[in-house]
Nucleic acid binder design. Structure first.
Length: 289
DNA sequence: AATCCGTGGCA
DNA sequence: TTGCCAAGGAT
């Protein structure tokens, strides 16, 4: 397997981006925050929010002491604001269960709100230099191409993918951790979803997809997630009003951002049910306290 | 297992 | 212009 790992590890040494959560100064909390923010959100959009977040809340206890609505507001326009709520809940859980220190075990990380198998493996690897198979969208794509010779991985993660990732994982934990970030970086910078830069690939001569002539994806069609007109867009607009306001907002200020009353009420109810909005009084709404 | 959940940049 | 996609998780 070193025929794959060695060239990618060497490539990473010279091509890795200088991201703040990879700095030796980064704390486990900083790594955890970055991983939550990076879920489905590009690095360039995360960077400024991450800096502001860590400056304001340098430790889990700092965030845990704040109302959850402050986390939602500081989240800004990163998207999927339930992540902010879960990060706040995770901070509280870290204080209550782990004395305010981010736990270093995969199982304890997995028990935290908003942390699934990927994020638990990522934090254990990147913050604590442990050995875990880290399977994100980048890694899955690299493995699909390099090993299986197909352009894209299956829709949902398979056992075979996990087995492949574990087979490639170097034995030495610190080396495994570096490998995990290296193959992710390769997927992010070179083995990209669209227009991969194969000429810059350190394992081009070992890539099965390349050997087959880079055949186009022929699996089941991707479902296009139309956004315009959805509840998600409506929720986004409603929450933006509350985020940009200083205090509680009266109902009419929410009504103006979406014309379909039925959908608007459904979206608002959903936000309340999710804990993202607090109906503080008759006709008044605010971010949760 | 399939859906839902934001947002913005880009080819 | 618009579909695609970006370090997923919860239900």
């Amino acid at each position: 397997m070193r025929k794959f790992t060695d060239p990618i590890l060497a490539w990473y040494e010279t091509h890795a981006r200088d991201l703040p959560w990879r700095s030796p100064d980064a704390t486990p909390w900083g790594v955890l925050v970055s991983e939550i923010m990076l879920q489905q959100t590009p690095v360039v959009r995360v960077l400024p929010v991450w800096h502001a977040w860590l400056e304001r809340w340098p430790a889990p206890a700092d965030l845990a002491a704040e109302p959850s609505g402050e986390a939602v507001r500081a989240w800004g326009r990163l998207g999927y604001p339930r992540r902010a709520l879960r990060l706040h809940a995770a901070a509280q859980a870290i204080v209550e269960r782990h004395g305010g220190e981010v736990p270093d075990s995969h199982a304890d990380l997995l028990d935290l709100p908003g942390i699934g198998s990927y994020t638990a493996a990522a934090v254990a690897s990147f913050a604590f230099r442990q050995r875990h198979a880290v399977l994100d969208t980048n890694v899955r794509r690299v493995l699909a191409r390099m090993i299986d010779g197909v352009e894209f991985p299956p829709k949902s993660q398979t056992r075979a993918e996990v087995a492949t990732a574990e087979t490639l994982l170097p034995v030495d934990p610190p080396t495994a951790a570096r490998w995990s970030v290296a193959i992710m970086e390769l997927g992010a910078l070179v083995c990209t979803a669209r227009s991969p830069r194969c000429v810059d690939c350190p394992v081009l001569d070992r890539c099965e997809w390349q050997a087959r002539g880079r055949p186009a994806y022929d699996g089941p069609p991707r479902r296009g997630q139309t956004y315009a007109g959805t509840d998600r867009q409506c929720r986004g607009r409603l929450l933006a009003v509350l985020r940009d306001a200083h205090g509680p907002v009266a109902k009419p200020a929410l009504d103006v951002v979406w014309s379909d009353a039925v959908q608007r009420e459904r979206a608002l109810d959903g936000l309340i049910a999710d804990g993202l909005v607090d109906p503080v009084a008759d006709g008044l709404y605010a971010l949760p306290s």
